[in-house]
Simulated scan of single mutants.
Amino acid sequence: MHETRKMPCYAVIFRSTQTDTQQGYAEMAARMQELAQQQPGFLGLESVRSPEGKGITVSYWQDLPSIRNWKENSEHQTAQRLGKQKWYRDFTIEIAKIESVSHFPQD
């Protein structure tokens, strides 16, 4: 069974490379996922990371105001600041509008 989301929706694509300093990262990442799930307009999240520290997290949102509200969340801003100071060597954030989705195999 595949997730179904009302279309169109938006994806925030967060690509990153971690530093060697990861103290506190796992706890903060878990908290951010928990907090994001509580935000109005949140639709889902997927995340992968390679053994070399390259990662991609895609969060799905109902609309652009929901994304903006998440970005401005005070606890999320603290995590963003710590990410820049300690946990990420680099990162890129892209926002994409999703018009349609197809799955294989079909349900």
Results as ranks from 00 to 15, higher is better:
K84V: 08
W70H: 13
F14C: 05
D90Q: 14
S74V: 07
R81Y: 10
V58I: 15
M7E: 05
D20Q: 15
R5L: 10
Q39A: 10
N69M: 12
K6E: 13
H76Y: 03
R5A: 04
E94K: 12
A11Q: 09
L35F: 04
Q18N: 13
L45P: 00
S74K: 12
G53F: 03
Y25C: 04
T19C: 07
L43N: 01
A11M: 08
D20G: 14
S16V: 09
I95Y: 05
D107S: 02
S100G: 03
V48D: 11
I56Y: 06
T4W: 06
Q62W: 02
S66A: 15
G24L: 11
T19F: 04
R15S: 15
D63I: 01
N73G: 07
E27Q: 15
I93N: 02
M28D: 14
S59K: 01
R5P: 00
W61L: 01
I98D: 00
V58Q: 09
Q38F: 02
L35C: 07
S66F: 06
Q23K: 15
G53M: 03
P8W: 07
K97V: 11
N69E: 13
E99A: 12
A79G: 14
Y60C: 00
K54F: 10
T92D: 13
L45R: 01
F104N: 10
W61D: 00
P105M: 01
T78R: 09
Q80L: 08
T17S: 13
S16D: 09
V48S: 10
G83T: 08
Q62M: 08
P51L: 11
Q39H: 11
E34P: 01
T21K: 14
E46M: 07
N69R: 15
S47C: 08
Y60P: 02
K54H: 13
K71G: 12
H2P: 12
Q62L: 10
S100L: 00
E34A: 14
E75C: 07
E75A: 09
G55C: 10
D107H: 00
M32F: 03
Q80T: 09
H76Q: 04
Q22C: 08
C9L: 09
E52G: 06
K86Y: 12
R31A: 12
L64V: 13
Q85E: 11
Y60I: 04
T17Q: 15
T78L: 09
E46I: 06
E3I: 06
A36C: 03
P65T: 04
P8H: 04
T19L: 06
V12A: 06
R68K: 14
R81C: 08
W87L: 07
T21R: 12
D20K: 15
G53P: 05
